[in-house]
Design a protein around this nucleic acid. Sequence first.
DNA 1: CTGACATCTGAGCGAGTGCTCATACGTTCA
DNA 2: TGAACGTATGAGCACTCGCTCAGATGTCAG
Lengths: 130, 130
Amino acid sequence: MAAAEPAEACDVFHIDPARVAGLRGALIAPSSVDALAETFRALGDPTRVRVLDALSHGELCVCDLAQLIGLSQSATSHQLRLLRALRLVRSRRAGRMVFYTLDDRHIVTLFRQGLRHVEEAAVKPRRRLA
Amino acid sequence: MAAAEPAEACDVFHIDPARVAGLRGALIAPSSVDALAETFRALGDPTRVRVLDALSHGELCVCDLAQLIGLSQSATSHQLRLLRALRLVRSRRAGRMVFYTLDDRHIVTLFRQGLRHVEEAAVKPRRRLA
DNA sequence: CTGACATCTGAGCGAGTGCTCATACGTTCA
DNA sequence: TGAACGTATGAGCACTCGCTCAGATGTCAG
């Protein structure tokens, strides 16, 4: 456990070692970290936010969805495939059309919570990167 | 408003036009969409998830944080800069060291909500992309 | 001031992302 | 069966991301 690491950072911990040990155990498990990041990454694109937001109001076919958010049919289909793989949306075929719905209402909650953060952050002045 | 669009998708809406009109008004505003996506994108990376998760348990200096999550000091600093610009973390200098904290407890709520989705999705079998 | 330490920052590279274009697939209708 | 329609998919390209490396900045001890 205490093997020789790259030592890129300082050699020892500056805070209480006991607290560090406690922290190590309290951290989210690696597998959950990756799954969590994967989910958030899916929400981290304006196009997919629009897709999911539109679907949060009810079922839509690919064509209508594409027009609604101003995206090409192909691009919409590609995004839906990704969202479907992540189990964020679900598809249902009806004739030549395919209808999509949200597969998990948790997403709506995440959106609402995220919006709350965004709105609160909008009040304070945003810092610049450079 | 009803100008000639690229017409890449089908020419007309398939669902009730009235419902489409209602949908257009109910969608999240473009500026909010971008801000929301920007926030979620920040959470959509395993490294940043680890950083924020570690900080959710309390203040940490860059050095300790880097060691805790097994990342180089430089990479950690770069990520912290990004998170600071998004107002997700806040810094406090103490001598040569700089301590970081979460700047918004909403993030913790988002994590918890996200984990709930992840855990639920883990039960069902995941679909493949191809 | 000088050296040591903690952190920050810019440049640059390999990997990944989101779009378009062309085309294939599945369904309906004549 | 064949054409039309809605959707899905693969290839390719411009762009972005996250890391490392080298060096700058800021702080403290002697």
